[in-house]
Computed example of a mutant assay.
Amino acid sequence: MPFSLEQYLQIDKITSSFIDQLNFRFSKLQDTMGESLFRAIMIMSKEDVKKMTFIDILNRLEELEVIDKNEWLALREIRNEIAHEYSFNQDEVVDTINIIYEKSDRLVNIYKSVHTFVKNRLLVK
C-alpha cells in the first residue's frame, strides 16, 4: 500500500478480501461513531439532543474539543465514496482504496480521542 493501478489489477482473492474488510470496517466505524456514539456523548453530557441536527452535534463536539468537524465531514465523504462505489473506472477505485488506507489510522485516532474524552470527562469516578 498504496496501490498503483498495475498492482491493483494483479491482486489475488486473499488480498482482495483484505481490501474489502478494510473498506467495510472503515465504513462501519465511521457510521457507528456518527450515528450512535456522538449522540450518546451528547446525552451523557446532558445536552438536549431531540432538536439537534447532526451538524449541531458535530459543532458541539468541536466546542468540547472532542473532534474536528471539518475533518469528520471529510472522512464522511470518503465513507460515502465507499458506500456508493460502483465505479467502473479502475483509477477511481484504486484512489479510493489508497485514501481509505491513508485515513484509517486517523479514524482510529479519532475513536481513541472520543474514548479518552468519555473516560476522563463523562464517566463517574
Results as ranks from 00 to 15, higher is better:
M1I: 09
P2H: 01
P2E: 02
P2D: 03
F3I: 02
E6G: 01
Q7K: 15
Q7H: 11
Y8D: 01
Q10I: 03
I11T: 12
I14K: 11
T15C: 07
S16D: 11
S17Q: 12
F18I: 08
F18G: 06
F18E: 12
I19L: 05
D20Q: 08
Q21T: 11
L22H: 00
L22S: 01
L22P: 00
L22G: 01
N23E: 13
N23K: 11
F24R: 06
R25E: 08
R25G: 02
F26L: 07
F26M: 08
S27I: 06
Q30F: 06
D31A: 06
T32K: 14
M33C: 10
M33V: 12
G34V: 03
G34W: 04
G34Y: 06
E35F: 11
E35K: 15
L37E: 03
L37K: 04
F38E: 01
A40E: 14
I41C: 10
M42L: 13
M42A: 06
M44C: 11
M44D: 13
S45K: 13
S45E: 15
K46D: 15
E47D: 14
E47W: 07
D48M: 10
V49G: 04
K50G: 09
K51R: 10
T53Q: 10
T53N: 12
I55W: 04
D56V: 09
L58H: 00
L58R: 01
N59A: 09
L61Q: 04
E62F: 00
E62G: 01
L64K: 14
E65A: 07
E65C: 03
V66R: 00
V66I: 14
D68T: 05
K69Y: 06
K69M: 14
K69F: 09
N70K: 15
E71N: 09
E71Y: 07
W72N: 07
W72P: 04
L73T: 11
L73F: 03
L73A: 05
A74D: 14
L75N: 02
L75H: 03
R76W: 05
E77L: 05
E77Y: 06
I78Y: 03
I78N: 02
I78F: 02
N80T: 00
E81K: 14
H84Y: 08
E85M: 14
Y86T: 12
S87C: 10
S87W: 05
S87E: 11
S87I: 10
F88C: 00
F88G: 05
F88Y: 05
F88V: 09
F88H: 04
N89C: 02
N89E: 11
Q90M: 10
V93Y: 02
V93M: 02
V94W: 05
V94Q: 03
D95E: 13
D95K: 11
N98R: 03
I100W: 01
Y101C: 07
R106E: 14
R106Q: 14
L107W: 02
L107N: 01
L107R: 01
V108G: 09
Y111I: 12
K112P: 02
K112N: 12
S113M: 01
V114F: 08
V114C: 08
V114H: 09
V118S: 08
V118I: 15
V118Q: 06
K119P: 01
K119T: 10
K119G: 00
N120F: 09
R121E: 13
R121D: 13
R121C: 10
L122I: 07
L123M: 15
V124Y: 14
